[in-house]
């Protein structure tokens, strides 16, 4: 019981971090059709920028400044890069973001070096929030939940209650219709791209000290964010949210399960012995392949339902 409760909380924290990254990507992906490979690189930039900024003005101002810097970088990328590539098709756009990944990676290494940064949780948040069955729940994780909940609320209000939000919402499902109605679609694109990068930067700020800030962090986060976006479905922030939390939960829960296919077969009288490839595959416990489950789930859902969990149109 205690493991379950703790796993639920931790899964939620990780899921919300995923959502912060994935929500920006979903918006960009659904509107512009761009599979932004550099999204996780912006996440990394957010963490590094926050580290540098927080050394001068402290963590909380950095929480505001670093995401804004990331948003500006995103706007610059959209205006001077993506927009010029747009008419060359989606694969050109994808390759463009692919090139960005290499460049940002090397730039980060050239600016901050190759080693992990000493980017730590601020002292004011470095205490156990409450104790649950003898396990601490750190205040910083509570803070992460708070920030992501605020972000969720903010995004929701922006999309539902403002004019630009309405246009974005419309463009999510009917991009052509919106431009036909005479809206400045390029400007909407820039706004969305910058907004997505801002959210990725924010995720970087609070994720950089939750995990470690190092040149490899973009690579480790990249694929899973794609999985969340595709699993959740295009054009649906709600689907993205559910997918994030599900993926967060799966990754934390899989660790707890120590059973393998062989254990399932044993009651049926099937005993696996010997040292063959089949035995090797069947005796792998779920915990060992936990990190792979999201990919298995993505392939499965796309196979049966190509529009994802709550997608409004085919991907």
């Amino acid at each position: 019981m205690e493991t379950i409760l703790i796993s639920v909380l931790n899964g939620l924290v990780y899921g919300m971090l995923l959502f912060m990254l994935a929500s920006g990507l979903t918006l960009i992906f659904s509107m512009m059709g761009v599979l932004n490979f550099a999204h996780a690189s912006i996440y990394m930039l957010g963490a590094y920028l926050a580290f540098t900024v927080s050394r001068f003005v402290g963590f909380f101002p950095a929480l505001i400044i670093a995401p804004i810097l990331c948003g500006l970088i995103g706007a610059a990328i959209e205006i001077w890069g993506l927009r010029r590539v747009h008419h060359n098709g989606h694969i050109a756009e994808l390759l463009f973001t692919f090139g960005l990944v290499f460049i940002i990676q090397r730039l980060v290494q050239m600016t901050w070096g190759m080693l992990p940064m000493a980017y730590r949780v601020p002292p004011s948040l470095d205490f156990p929030l409450f104790v649950l069955y003898g396990a601490n729940f750190p205040a910083y994780r509570g803070f992460m939940l708070l920030v992501s909940a605020a972000m969720l609320l903010g995004t929701w209000l922006l999309l539902k209650k403002t004019r630009i939000g309405l246009i974005i919402q419309a463009a999510l499902t009917h991009p052509h219709m919106v431009s036909s109605l005479g809206h400045n679609v390029p400007r909407v694109f820039t706004t969305v791209f910058a907004g997505g990068c801002l959210l990725a930067g924010l995720a970087g700020v609070i994720g950089g000290n939750y995990q470690t800030t190092e040149p490899g962090m973009a690579e480790s986060m990249g694929p899973i964010v794609f999985v969340v976006v595709v699993f959740g479905g295009l054009g649906s922030l709600a689907g993205c949210f559910i997918a994030s939390v599900v993926m967060g939960m799966i990754q934390t829960f899989a660790v707890v399960i120590d059973y393998s296919v062989a254990d399932l077969l044993r009651p049926m009288g099937v005993m696996l012995t010997g040292d063959t490839l089949l035995t090797e595959v069947l005796t792998v416990p779920v915990a060992r392949i936990g990190a792979l489950l999201p990919f298995v789930m993505m392939v499965t859902i796309l196979f049966f339902r190509p529009r994802g969990l709550m997608g409004t149109r085919d991907t």
Binding site: E2, S7, N10, F253, V255, R288, L292
Partner: peptide
């Protein structure tokens, strides 16, 4: 005695819970 995926785990808190148990 456990093997974990190399470089893929983002949150170790479940492992810690397991170790503790």
């Amino acid at each position: 005695d456990e093997l974990m995926p190399f470089g893929k785990v983002q949150d170790f808190s479940s492992y810690v819970a397991k170790i503790k148990a």
